[in-house]
C-alpha cells in the first residue's frame, strides 16, 4: 500500500466524528464561465458507505464526482478525500488519485493494450511492480470481474459489458479505498447492463467506499446506503433508498422519478 500522511492530522479539525469521512465536500463550487455547474455542494461519504447520485442531465452530478479526483478543479469550497485536502498542488492530486478509482461511462480502455495490460499499466508505473507481480495482481482482479479467460484480448475484441468490466478491474488494480462510477451502464446495450451491475454489487459487498452516478433504480435499492438527488448544481434531497424512491419529499425529485420511471 502507498504511504499516506496520517489521516488524523487534517481530519482532526474538520469533523468531530471519531472516524474521518472518506469523502468530505463543503460548499464546493465549480464554474464554467458564467454557468455554475456546482453551486455550493455539501456532502459527506463515510468509510464503506455506498452512495448513489442521480439527477437530470446537466444537474452537475458528473461534475461532482469528477471534482473528487480532480479531473475537474473546483473553484470554491473544500474537498477532503481520505484525510487529504485537495488543493491546487500537483502532489495532493496524485496522492488522492492513488486512493480513488474511477470507472467512466465510455470505458476509456487503452485500445493498444490487451485487457491484462490495461490492468497492469498503472501498478507497474505508479507502484513500481515488476511485470510478474503486476500480471499476478491484474489476473486476480480480472478473475474478480469474471474475465480471466479474456485477459489476452484487445478491447476492440470485447463486448461493451466486458470492456466495462475490464475498466472496473483496471481501477481495482490500484487497490483504491474509494471507487467512483460515472454512469457506468448508460453507454451499454440493455442486455449487458446486468453483468456490469452484478460485478459492481459484488464489489459493494467487499466494504469499499462507493459513489455511483446512475439511474438504475433496482441497483440503487439493492446497494445504496444513501441516495442523493441533484438538480441545477445543488443537492436537493438525500435519504435512504427506500424513502428516496417511495416517498420523495421534494417536488423536483417526484417530477424526476416520474419522468425516468415512465
Amino acid at each position: 500500500m502507498i504511504a499516506r500522511p496520517p489521516a488524523s492530522d487534517l481530519a482532526g479539525d474538520l469533523a468531530p466524528a471519531p472516524v474521518a469521512p472518506a469523502i468530505l465536500l463543503a460548499g464546493v463550487v465549480k464554474r464554467y464561465g458564467a454557468h455554475r455547474a456546482l453551486a455550493g455542494v455539501d456532502l459527506q461519504v463515510q468509510r464503506g458507505e455506498k452512495v448513489v447520485i442521480c439527477g437530470p442531465s446537466g444537474s452537475g452530478k458528473s461534475t461532482l464526482i469528477r471534482c473528487i479526483n480532480a479531473l475537474e478543479r473546483h473553484d470554491g469550497g473544500r474537498i477532503v478525500v481520505n484525510g487529504i485536502e485537495l488543493t491546487g498542488d500537483e502532489g495532493t492530486v496524485q496522492d488522492i488519485r492513488q486512493e480513488v478509482g474511477m470507472v467512466f461511462q465510455h470505458f476509456n480502455l487503452f485500445p493498444h493494450l490487451t485487457a491484462l495490460e490495461n490492468c497492469m499499466l498503472a501498478p507497474q508505473l505508479n507502484r513500481g511492480l515488476s511485470k510478474a507481480q503486476a500480471e499476478k495482481l491484474a489476473m486476480a482482479h480480472l478473475e474478480r470481474v469474471h474475465l480471466a479467460d479474456q485477459a489476452r484480448k484487445y478491447p476492440a475484441r470485447l463486448s461493451g459489458g466486458q470492456q466495462q468490466r475490464v475498466a472496473i478491474a483496471r481501477a481495482l488494480c490500484m487497490e483504491p479505498r474509494i471507487l467512483l462510477f460515472d454512469e457506468p451502464t448508460s453507454a451499454l446495450d440493455p442486455e449487458m447492463v446486468k453483468e456490469v451491475l452484478g460485478v459492481i454489487e459484488e464489489l459493494a459487498a467487499s466494504g469499499v467506499t462507493m459513489v455511483c452516478v446512475t439511474h438504475e433504480m433496482g441497483f440503487a435499492r439493492r446497494v445504496a446506503d444513501r441516495c442523493v438527488f441533484m438538480d441545477r448544481g445543488e443537492i436537493v434531497e438525500e435519504g435512504g433508498a427506500q424513502d428516496f424512491f417511495d416517498a420523495p419529499k421534494s417536488e423536483r425529485l417526484r417530477h424526476f422519478l416520474a419522468q425516468i420511471l415512465r
Binding site: 479531473l71 492513488q98 478509482g101 467512466f104 465510455h106 476509456n108 508505473l125 505508479n126 483496471r170 490500484m174
Partner: peptide, 22 residues
Amino acid sequence: PHGIVEASEALGITRRNIFLWV
C-alpha cells in the same frame, strides 16, 4: 481521445508516464 488521457490521470499515472505509455 481525451477520455483515454483522463482515464490515465484518474489512475494516478504521472503526466510524463501518460505521455510515454498512452
